[in-house]
Write a protein that binds this DNA or RNA. Structure first.
Lengths: 210, 210, 210, 210
DNA sequence: GATGAATGAGCATTCATTCAT
DNA sequence: TATGAATGAATGCTCATTCAT
């Protein structure tokens, strides 16, 4: 699926898609290593496996690469969340499972998420808005799962807050690993965060037959 | 107090201190507005009130400015935390109060924290280590306050986790304001986060006579 | 008629001719608008109605397009001068008529002449010589008409000078329109320039029975 | 006198003036040789005797060099015309003298005028307007001299036309030398053009006691 | 100590031209 | 014949850093 926010002068859409994937893959690795600003377009071209001229057949400006990278990361995270999280199921188990899936996802896409985290602000306002909408969607998914897992209604704001906390704690496993890895593995991290959350919600939670 | 990590060719320490403060003040404003990479040394010099030549009498490289800025921010946050948080007091009230102080601090230094958040990765490994140590110190303060507020011992890892959660939630008020401000004011945000935390800890908390 | 100064890899001469005409038509419009140097080969191909690859089947280098354009303009001007000017007729009326025709021609081909005027110097020396020969031919035509209109012989140099003056005044109507249009329409311009010229020549002119 | 249409980041106005003169001198030579578009900024810097970085301390964009060059040429032509032409004197001799001075000037600044002629269209609309105003001023000077040399009034349009003819004939000596030099030297060219003009005006001219 | 002119390596971007299909 | 994807040399411009005054 070609991202039409970024025009290309190449007509063959399948090719555009293929080349942009090469580009994204190469760019993520570089951005991870040295950040967007310290990465040159030539390096991106080289890491993508084609020439600088070819790079510019598929984008207009360097910032387009960043946009493509951020968008692709958000898209992949969103898709994988949609695949692994059931927003209809109403059991508590479903919330626990959703958190686990999401944290595992964050663990696996750690580098990508870190890149995204540090560089979104380098995008133009428009591009940021476009990309952040996906973040809102993801938080909304978590909110739905939370609501479904509760037996009593709690204030909307609290649901939003919990969803945001979970969301950020997932990312935190990526961008604060330097401090967390002293005390946790991914599994213990998931387990303890879940534990803490459920304790806080205990009185409103649905009964679960495990 | 002159930061000796960054050598200056000027002998007069008082002057170095004064000039660097001008520099930091000007630079924070610029980094906030356009980020470290898009800010030029000329702009920094101008915003600091002196010439480009003079700027380089007080630093060696552009990165030194970033280091000075980050260090100064951490330093100020740390100092203000130390001033408002009592790590000896053992009441639950003290934890509540510490959280409130810290969140208010984050609210007031929102821009600075945002800058720091996005730009630390641009520092050299050494500079990052130096600066992150201050972060570790702050988390440690929170850990101490948490431990003091509990009647029973809980695993060290849990203490670390809670401290990290609080720490990040404070920053989150700054860097995710775009999504949080739909549901919260600073006060309601503090109140609900505190509420959630205490619910989760309720069984281990010290009794409080309010 | 295919211009053999510019080789093509296509064999079918009729096709070459057709494609080059498309090319010239498209290119003139572009050169007029933005000049030769700011026009890209891709734009020329697009304006010509075929692909960049096809463009290069009919020329060797970008400069060939400019040559083709200049040559075509000169050719058209020359042909139309030959069609409307009678170099055998010896009346004064014929000179007056020749000037009128030529000025009207310049008015109609204003854009083309302007393009040619500004861009010939971008041609290689050889191409310039080739193209300027046509200009010499046109001036020679004017010289002939002038000589025919005189009753007495005047120095060759004077004839050349007058022919050049007429020639340039015709072009001047194109490239200095910004200043002339405040005082003249095409008709008054023709009338006054003719008047001035005839005054200067009055004593040598042939009698005319109008 | 520093041209304020083009901002410089250097404060010392005398220096700006000096460097820009170096720049103009170097650039004219290059533009003359290969045209504005085929001249690189590096070449301009080199020909000016300083580095590319320094060049850009005195201008903002490459086009600024062209503007500076065109403006300087017009300015010099205008100044020298003002110095050698008397717009108050009312004798016929004065017109003859003015033409001679102007043609000699064009002869001496041939290269500059050629450059200007071919490249003004590369300037932005604004810059063109600014520069062409100087041309209007010069034509106006010629008009004044013409009017002063006449005993009877002739239509304003005719005065404008004659002034323009003289103006263009002066330039023509530069840009059509390839065809004129077969029949003329500068002196004979001046003499014959003047002769032609005076013949045309004879009945309206002031008596001159030579 | 302060200034700001000079430097040139470095970077993003363009575009004429080629060539496999 | 026609196409258009690929190439990379070339170019305009920026900016951190130095150093003479």
């Amino acid at each position: 699926m070609v991202n039409n926010q970024v025009p290309s002068s190449i007509k063959d859409e399948a090719l555009v898609s293929k080349r942009r994937n090469q580009m994204i893959k190469g760019a993520v690795a570089l951005f991870k290593e040295k950040g967007f600003h310290k990465t040159t377009t030539r390096e991106i071209a080289k890491a993508s496996g084609f020439s600088i001229g070819t790079l510019y057949e598929y984008i207009r400006k360097k910032e387009d690469v960043l946009f493509l990278v951020c968008d692709s990361i958000y898209q992949r995270v969103k898709e994988r969340m949609e695949a692994s999280i059931d927003t209809n199921e109403t059991s508590l188990q479903n919330l626990v499972q959703a958190i686990r899936s999401y944290f595992q996802l964050m663990d696996g896409m750690q580098d990508e998420v870190l890149v995204m985290y540090q560089e979104v602000k380098s995008l133009s306002k428009d591009a940021q808005d476009y990309v952040l909408q996906k973040e809102r969607d993801m938080v909304a998914m978590l909110e739905q799962v939370i609501v479904n897992s509760l037996s009593e209604k709690i204030p909307e704001a609290d649901v939003a807050l919990i969803a945001n906390n979970i969301f950020v704690q997932g990312q935190m496993w990526g961008f604060r690993r330097w401090i967390l890895k002293r005390s946790f593995t991914l599994d213990t991290y998931i387990e303890r965060q879940t534990h803490l959350l459920l304790e806080g919600l205990s009185s409103q939670l649905k009964e679960t037959q495990s």
